[in-house]
Design a protein around this nucleic acid. Structure first.
Length: 475
RNA sequence: GACCCGUUCGUCUAAGGGUUAGGACACCGCCCUUUCACGGCGGUAAUACGGGUUCGAAUCCCGUACGGGUCGCCA
């Protein structure tokens, strides 16, 4: 997102159509709670996926809640990018922006009355006090134990922990107030507070979030206790790191969800790969449809160590999904990439061409490169490929034999073309294999690309002969 | 720095006291293909280190090292 394009977040400006939620009144309720301050990032998307899968697996409800309490940093552009990303991935929400629900509003910026009410309770019970205009929550001086579904039991004493703070500037420990600020002097509420209040109010049963929140959880538990509420089940999932083992940043390859769409990934493949980073079906299956993921995903399969992102494997997962796509879905998904490359997706030869390309491309964006020559009036010759076929001294004879043979065939099918090439080879005392590569280069411009004979079929005899004679004249 | 979490091939992972430590990506080789791929078969490659417990440890315990996270009037 452009740094200059920062419109303060206004929920009513957003486009969130196409999300008809289905309300399922079951016990499990999970939520994805993004803060609209940037892009939809692979880490956030995976968190959303795990929450969505968990809810779907258990017949529960998946809620989208927008944590926009920091008015200075929340933007409409960011919110739109996050919504678009979730939509593209197909992680539809049952309650939240655009679909409503019994527990709304789902933008925290619109829930101040709720927070005021909860704050009053803490005031009444003596849990908070004012400090420099801010409101602080008194943390208890006792060991708080988080029973995490993934990490196990983790105990902390907030009072002890919070009474010292590390100053990154001076690299020293300094005295600190362990009581957490829950409301700013300007009236805005703070994450820890609203997060807990909304999880109570929205009846969230399972909080699945990144392990970076594990250290925050004792604070949240203290708040749940102060409200006399039963906390949800916490499941802190391991983080995804970049290949060098540090936190994924937006500059790392594969970090931003919208780029997957632009680069020609299928949403199902991205979901599949994200699921694999930190979760395993415990057998050897790695390629899953969305339905299979919903059926098989569960918390016990989530492991506890961080993983490094592997773009090559992500591409491979995509290629596997590409192979299994129906012809119609392949066309639908490839169409934008074809158009962008100047190929008319409605061209009658496209479906056949796509079948030639699907095994050779890992990404949708690689498809045009494989078949573009079929739809182009001119051939773009690759120098290295020409050099390779030029090594044979008899190239001109080969090309003219090819042109004659192909011009003379009346059976314009894969088999007919192959036997024409075979006969042409015989006439000049060569084997068929010696003619295939020169023919490729003459007609397609390169030694690589789609299967030759089917390409010739699609091109038509006249065009093939034209290209052969044109190439012969060039020599 | 303090606290927390983690550590199986380069990477993602399986194996929760007894396996020749399995699979996948990537890489290499062979086969298939009279072309390009797909595909098939095979190969290189791992339990961080040190102590325990045990007849037996990748697996349980302790320590060390390394990696990550948190320490905001961000979320």
């Amino acid at each position: 997102m452009n740094e200059e394009r920062r419109t303060p977040l206004n929920p009513s400006n957003l486009d969130h159509r196409s999300h008809c939620g289905t309300f399922t009144a079951m016990t499990v309720r999970t939520r994805f709670a993004p803060s609209p301050t940037g892009f939809l990032h692979i880490g956030g998307a995976r968190t959303a996926l795990y929450n969505w899968l968990y809810a779907r697996h258990h017949g529960g409800t998946f809620i989208l809640r927008v944590e926009d309490t920091d008015a200075d940093r929340s933007t409409t552009e960011s919110m739109q990018i996050i919504l678009d990303g979730l939509k593209w991935l197909g992680l539809e929400w049952d309650e939240g922006p655009g679909v409503g629900g019994e527990y709304g509003p789902y933008f925290q910026s619109e829930r101040n009355d709720v927070y005021d009410r909860y704050l009053a309770r803490l005031e009444a019970s003596g849990h908070v006090y004012e400090d420099d205009g801010a409101i602080r929550f008194r943390v208890p001086d006792k060991l708080i134990t988080v029973s995490d579904a993934i990490c196990g039991e983790v105990s902390t004493n907030l009072k002890e922990q919070g009474s010292r703070r590390y100053d990154a500037e001076t690299k020293q420990e300094v005295e600190a107030n362990p009581d957490i600020v829950i409301k700013r002097p300007n009236g805005g509420y703070i994450f820890h507070f609203v997060n807990v209040v909304d999880d109570i109010e929205m009846a969230i049963t399972h909080v699945i979030r990144g392990e970076d929140h594990l250290s925050n959880t004792p604070k949240h538990l203290a708040l749940f206790e102060a409200f006399g509420a039963t906390p949800p089940v916490f499941a802190h999932i391991p983080l995804n790191l970049n290949p060098s083992g540090t936190k994924m940043s937006k500059r790392d390859q594969g970090a931003l969800i919208h780029e997957y769409q632009e680069n020609g990934f299928l949403p199902a493949a991205v979901n599949n790969y994200m699921a694999l980073l930190g979760w395993s079906a415990k057998d050897d299956q790695e390629i899953f449809s969305i339905e299979e993921l919903k059926a098989r995903f569960d918390l016990p399969g989530v492991n506890s160590s961080n993983s490094k992102f592997d773009y090559d494997k992500c591409r491979w997962v995509n290629s596997e999904h590409l192979k299994h796509l129906s012809a119609a879905d392949l066309l639908t998904n490839a169409a934008p990439f074809l158009s962008r490359a100047g190929i008319d997706p409605t061209d009658a030869r496209v479906p056949a061409a796509l079948e030639l390309a699907r095994d050779r491309a890992q990404l949708l964006s690689e498809i045009p490169g494989v078949i573009a020559t079929i739809f182009s009036d001119t051939v773009t010759y690759d120098d290295a490929s020409i050099a390779k076929v030029r090594e044979k001294a008899e190239l001109p004879q080969v090309i003219s034999a090819l042109a004659d043979g192909i011009a003379g065939t009346s059976d314009w099918t894969v088999d007919g073309i192959k036997s024409a090439i075979n006969e042409a080879a015989g006439k000049i005392g060569l084997k068929m294999g010696a003619l295939m590569l020169p023919c490729r280069v003459a007609v397609m411009g390169s030694t690589t690309g789609a299967d030759l004979a089917p390409v010739l079929v699609l091109l038509g005899k006249e065009e093939v002969v034209k290209r052969l004679t044109g190439f012969g004249a060039m020599l």
